[in-house]
Structures are given as structure tokens and as C-alpha cells.
């Protein structure tokens, strides 16, 4: 199995998002923090005239963020199981490229592939909302 993925950097981790789910890559949106929100929810932003929840991908992935550095890019993407998808913003440090990943090469269930000798974590967008 293979497919186009958007590679992003979150802290020191490179993550791959399925390109089909990604709608747009924009500069960090202006956030409005929500009181009492969970740690993964950074706040609400406005995108194409609609409110958009912006999640902290690093926290969702359990990856170590870079202290003090605010995410520079927001990836607007669909998450959740098919038929119940939700458009959210994922705050990342950097959007790297769109690349074709050979998922067969990855160990099943490991959620990680090597791209140019470098480990890239595959993000399962369908289950991302559950964890949140």
C-alpha cells in the first residue's frame, strides 16, 4: 500500500499526514484560547469564515516539543472515522514536503516508516480524535 503524505516537523519528530485528508497548509492562525479546554486543544481560530479548533499535534502524538517555540504552521485537515469526519487545525512547527510513502515497507502496526534513512511517524488521522 502506498500514498501521498504531507511530512511535518513537530519538535524533533517528523510526522506524516495522509495528503488526501489535508485540505490546506496555512501560516499559524490567530488563536482564541478556550477556557477549560483540554491540553491538546490550543483554541479556536477562524478559517474560511468558519470557526476551527486547533489541536497541538505534538501533544496528541506525545512527542517532545521544542520549549518556547510556538508552532509556525497550521495544517487544516479532516480527522475522525469516515462518515464522521471533522475539520480541525493541527499546529506544527514546520511543513516539510508532500511525499509518496511506501507503507508496505513499514512494520505493521509500528506506525513508522523510513524516509531517506530518517524515521517518520505515521499519523492515523481517523483515530486522532479519539485519543484527543
Amino acid at each position: 500500500m502506498s500514498g501521498a503524505h504531507l511530512l511535518v516537523r513537530v519538535g524533533e519528530t517528523t510526522a506524516a499526514l495522509p495528503a488526501a485528508a489535508v485540505r490546506r497548509v496555512v501560516r499559524s492562525l490567530r488563536l482564541h484560547p478556550l477556557p477549560g479546554a483540554g491540553e491538546g486543544l490550543l483554541g479556536l481560530a477562524e478559517f474560511a469564515g468558519e470557526p476551527l479548533a486547533v489541536l497541538d499535534l505534538a501533544r496528541l502524538m506525545g512527542a517532545a516539543g521544542v520549549a518556547g517555540a510556538s508552532p509556525a504552521v497550521t495544517v487544516v485537515t479532516w480527522i475522525g472515522p469516515a462518515g464522521d469526519r471533522e475539520l480541525v487545525g493541527l499546529a506544527v512547527d514546520e511543513a516539510l514536503e508532500v511525499a509518496e510513502l511506501d507503507l508496505g515497507a513499514a512494520a505493521a502496526g509500528a506506525g513508522e516508516v523510513l524516509v531517506a534513512e530518517r524515521p517518520v511517524r505515521l499519523v492515523d488521522l481517523e483515530r486522532l480524535g479519539e485519543e484527543a
Partner: peptide, 17 residues
């Protein structure tokens, strides 16, 4: 350059779609 980069990424995403 950063804007161009983001534009290129979005174009690539569109191309993939």
C-alpha cells in the same frame, strides 16, 4: 519564501488529490 513554500505544499496536496 515561506509563503511560496506553503503555496507549493498546498499545490502538491492539490496535485495529489
Amino acid at each position: 519564501a515561506q509563503e511560496t513554500h506553503l503555496l507549493s505544499l498546498n499545490a502538491a496536496l492539490e496535485a495529489a488529490a
